[in-house]
Structures are given as C-alpha cells and as structure tokens.
Simulated assay, not measured.
Amino acid sequence: MTEPRPRQPGAHDRRLQGDVRIVGAGLLGTSIGLALTAKGVDVALADLSPTAVRLAVDYGAGRPASAGDRPALVVVAVPPDVTASTVAAELEAHPEALVTDVASVKGSVLAELRAIGADVSRYLGTHPMAGRERGGPISARADLFVGRPWVLAGHDGISYRAAGAIEDLILDVGAVPIELSVEEHDRAVALISHVPQLVATAMAARLRGASNAAVDLAGQGVRDVTRIASSDPGLWVQILGANAGPVAGILRSLRDDLDEAISALEHPNASGSRRALADLLGAGNAGVARIPGKHGEDRRYAQLIVMVDDTPGQLARLLTEIGELGVNMEDLRLEHSPGAPIGFAEISIVPEAEERLIAELEARGWRIAGAS
C-alpha cells in the first residue's frame, strides 16, 4: 500500500490538458465539472436525465455534450450497477480517450470490463473519498475534493504513467492522489466506509421501536454513530453487493467481538468478563487514535464543550472570539438541548491550548459545560 504523493493540492497551476467529458451529472460528476471549469478546462456533460444536465450547466459545471466532441479524458460518474457498461460504451465511442470512473468499488467493475473484452489499457478506475449526505447537481460544490484522498486503483493492464491525465485531474480539483491496487482499495473501503454504513444503519434501526422519552434523550453519542444512516438504500444495496466478500469478512470479525461482549455482559461477575470488556474498549481507543486528524496528522485533540444561547449571532460570536484569542479550531460539532433554548458547541483544539482557552472564554462570559 503506497503513501499519498507529496504534492500539495492547489499548489500548482492547471495541469490537465485536453477536453473532459463527464458522464453523470449527479453530485460527484457536477462537482468535478465545477472544479475543472474553474481551472479553465472545457467540460462536456452527459446524463440520461436532460434535467440533470441543464441543472449542472446552469450551476457552471460545463456545457452539454455534443456529437462532435473528442475528449482526451472521460470521467464516468454513474451508479455502481451501470458503471462497467457505461465505461465500456465510452471506451468504444471515444477510442483516443483515457477513461476513468469514480465508483466506490473497483474490483467488480474491472472484472466485468475484462469479461466483455473492453480495452482496459485505456481504463484506470478511481475513487474520491468525498461526498455529502445529499445528492444531485443541486448539492455539488467546486471545493468538494479539496484536501481529500482520491484513490487511483491500479491494475496490470495499464501503467500509472499512461494514466497521468487522471492524476492531473485529481490534482487540479485539489485532491490528494493515492495509488492502491484494485484489491487493496476494495478491502480498505470495506473497512473504512462500507461496514461503518451497515453498523450505523443497524444502530439507527434500533431507534424505530424506542419510546419518545428515550429518543428525546439522544445526545452526541447516538448522533455520531447514526449520522450516515440516512444514506440512499438503493445506492448502498449496489455498493455492498459489489464489495460483498470484503464486507462480509469484516462483519464476521465484528460479530465475534460482539459475541464476546454479549457473553461478558450476560455473565458480568464471571472470571474474565470485566477484562474482556476493558480489552475491547481499550482496543477501540487504540483504533480511533490511528484515524488521521486535520491535514492527515495522527494526533489527538482536546474537546471543549461551550454552552451557546439559541439566539441569532451567538455561535458566530463564539467562533470569532476563539479566533481573536489565537486558538486554531480543529473541529466543531453542535448539539441542541431538547426543550431548552441553548445548544452545546463541542470544539476540538490542541491540548496545549485547552487551559488558556477555558480561562479566556469564561472571562468573556461563556459557560463551559465540559472538557476532556
């Protein structure tokens, strides 16, 4: 598994040469179009939905594709179950173009292309690790990919050098290119994306039968765990089906951990039960510590919870004053208190700034509800 290229996103002039055709005017396709047109690239948009194309064009993501276009690069941004067939059609229609796709699973696409005899010497799949809970061209953003990892999923039918235009596109939209094999990619996204989606969904499903009183107690914990559970079921059935093997393997290991925890909870006074729970919780601490923070840094931050009156301008005032104090905010999460006109702003900062920030904010009249 390779490390991200050392180039800094945005620290270069436009690199991509030639016209780009984007097939699929949804969130990702339109966002790519917005970022490239801002760089002066001629982008032609195509989609089965004329309305989606018109919307994307109105937002400035490019122009409608025409029969005379001769793109140097084709980006396929369509649902997973039609990605391979669309890539194959674009390879045939544009014999001089390099073709890529942005589907979240790579192995099944490559296998299907090979099975139908497509020219994979001009195809390299990619996967931008970026998105939003909402889809469609109306949700697109030109900065969606800035600073985000974007995987180039290599295979033995094409060299990374031959696919240089794809890396140029990734750099032009501000993302960080990462080279992985197709197999490495699918195993990685099963762990960091696909299984978390199922876990969040399964937890959220438990809330259906909960009492109103229980749901009213919902705090940041359950909100964090279930945040992605509102994703499109139809899309996720396609994704999970295409990456079923790696996902099932991780779920089996997770099931083993849960079975051990269940056994310990069913017999809490048995020898070793508390240690089993402690070991699992400790392993979780070690695992979350490996998740890169801001700018890819592997470090932990202190969390400060500030009470904010639910009136216009209060949150903006808090953020402004933190900036005036010279403290860099690494992350921010908001939570409302049910039935009360206040909210809680959980602010992540470097640990060395925690004590001073608490003192300065309290001196300015802010109420600190907790720190860690």
Rank of each mutant, 00 (worst) to 15 (best):
E335L: 14
P71A: 10
G323K: 08
G157V: 07
D19V: 06
T100Y: 06
I250V: 15
R300Q: 14
K39T: 04
G29A: 05
E133T: 07
E92H: 14
P268N: 03
A44I: 05
R223H: 02
Q220P: 04
E330V: 14
L332C: 03
V306H: 06
G147H: 06
G136L: 05
H185M: 11
R21H: 11
L357F: 12
V222K: 03
E92L: 15
L55T: 15
E179K: 09
G164I: 02
V225S: 03
L265K: 00
G131R: 03
Q197R: 04
A289C: 01
R364M: 13
A88R: 05
E321F: 05
L171Y: 05
G282R: 09
D216K: 12
G293E: 01
V308Y: 03
A77N: 10
A162H: 02
A363W: 05
N328K: 10
S193L: 10
R21K: 04
P128D: 11
P128N: 12
R333I: 14
R206A: 04
V215D: 04
E133S: 12
V76Q: 05
H336Y: 10
P128L: 13
P196L: 09
K294G: 06
I368W: 02
K294N: 06
A218I: 06
H185G: 10
L318M: 09
G339F: 10
E324H: 09
V102Q: 04
A153C: 09
A278M: 09
A200Q: 07
P6N: 14
R252T: 04
A52H: 15
G282Y: 05
L55A: 15
G135E: 06
H127I: 09
A44C: 08
R317A: 13
A190W: 09
G18A: 01
G157Y: 04
P71C: 10
V120H: 00
E112T: 13
A38Y: 04
G282H: 11
A371H: 14
T320Y: 15
P341T: 07
I291M: 09
V146Q: 08
V43N: 13
Q17K: 10
A214G: 02
G125N: 08
G60T: 10
V182F: 08
S159L: 08
I170N: 06
S273W: 01
R227K: 11
P6W: 08
L180T: 11
A278R: 12
E133G: 12
Y59N: 08
I116E: 14
P233H: 00
E266Q: 08
I358P: 03
L113C: 08
V105S: 12
V43R: 04
D298Q: 11
S121F: 03
N269S: 15
I349A: 10
N328W: 04
L55C: 13
G241D: 07
R5D: 15
E330W: 06
A118K: 00
A77C: 15
V82W: 01
S273H: 02
G18P: 07
I291R: 00
H185A: 12
V173L: 04
L304S: 07
T201L: 15
V82M: 11
T100N: 03
V146L: 10
R134V: 15
R54H: 13
P246Y: 10
A93F: 05
E179R: 15
A316L: 06
L280E: 03
R187K: 13
A345T: 14
I291K: 00
T30P: 08
R274H: 05
P4S: 13
L34R: 09
A244H: 12
I305F: 07
D224F: 00
L254R: 01
D310T: 07
A264F: 01
E321I: 05
